[in-house]
Design a protein around this nucleic acid. Structure first.
Lengths: 172, 172
DNA sequence: CTATTGCAGATAAACATTATCCACGATAAA
DNA sequence: TTTATCGTGGATAATGTTTATCTGCAATAG
């Protein structure tokens, strides 16, 4: 079982975007720089987040990304599913049917118990991720992490966030 | 997030082996046939299970595999970890350190909160899998599944299991 | 001795992930 | 209106992992 590296990038970016003020945005290039990531590839993941309506994007100069809703209403599950897809990790291939003894399909109406058990475990996984809000991640970071790191992070955000023309959607 | 197909094969094989009597064994080729799997590749997974001491193997003609302990003491977690490895799904690349602002390593002694949250979720996943015993899978199968399927499965096991020369380890 | 079976390693084929690039539409600022 | 910046989408390559096969070897029942 393995999660792609994009998950880590996506969560860090979302956490950073939680720090921008009002409806300001931050460019993808800034976030790529902040984490030492490939800018062109990071765009792919940010796009997934935008498609899932976790982020909003603004085109043009002074454009960039911002959270589409408050950090309290974004869970790690939202982000993980957006980046990794909503498919369960265990996919039942129904190999029990593939043997030389071919029974009628009616013999397999009951769902495979193995599949059920695996799905139940994944449900527990997702429930735990759903509990973890982006706002918790941020506030734990602010209280627990080394002050130098927090200061550097805040400075970076302050330096790179870009105010918008007022306009459009909802404002803080 | 994705689990390899080997997990499904491994669990089905283990469940089938739970049906063999005493210290009898079943050949890998028989199990491959039962599930329509590639025999040579299935061996790889069975080997993982043997290395993890979930299965025991017997060489030679009339050889094969059997459970290394009772089905009550084998959990789905045991099997998943044996086949997929013990690494957590989320691997923290510490990308928070990779930005242009290089802080001293002492600024990062506290573990990354994102990593902690992801690991916590995976802990819940593993706990759920640890609860699921192979014996539960088997007994639910026997009571819930279509009688035709159960009968066919039992017949297959009875036909392919092979008694051993008494000898060796522990007997039922 | 021989046939069957599991084991280890090399290797190939198929697929997924990671990464880069380019043409494009949007837009803020000059 | 022009220009430069930025996100979007698609094409494409580089890389790595999973899946699969094969071969030679050790074990062993008959």
């Amino acid at each position: 079982m393995k999660l792609g590296e994009g998950v880590e990038a996506a969560i860090h970016c979302a956490a950073m975007l939680a720090g921008v003020e009002g409806n300001s945005t931050m460019a993808a290039s800034a976030m790529a720089e902040a984490f030492g990531l490939s800018p062109s590839y990071l765009l792919k993941h940010l796009n997934m987040l935008t498609a899932a309506r976790i982020l909003e994007s603004v085109s043009g100069p002074a454009g960039g990304y911002r959270l589409a809703r408050s950090a309290e209403r974004i869970s790690l599950l939202d982000i993980v599913l957006a980046v990794e897809g909503r498919e369960p990790a265990f996919r039942c291939g129904e190999i029990r049917r593939n043997g030389p003894v071919r029974l009628d399909a009616s013999a397999y109406v009951k769902p495979c118990g193995i599949n059920a058990a695996m799905l139940k475990a994944e449900k527990a996984y997702r429930a735990a991720l759903a509990e973890a809000k982006l706002s918790d991640i941020v506030s734990e970071y602010v209280t627990d992490a080394d002050p130098r790191s927090v200061a550097a992070g805040c400075a970076f955000v302050a330096r790179h966030q870009r105010p918008q023309k007022s306009s459009s959607t909802k404002q803080a």
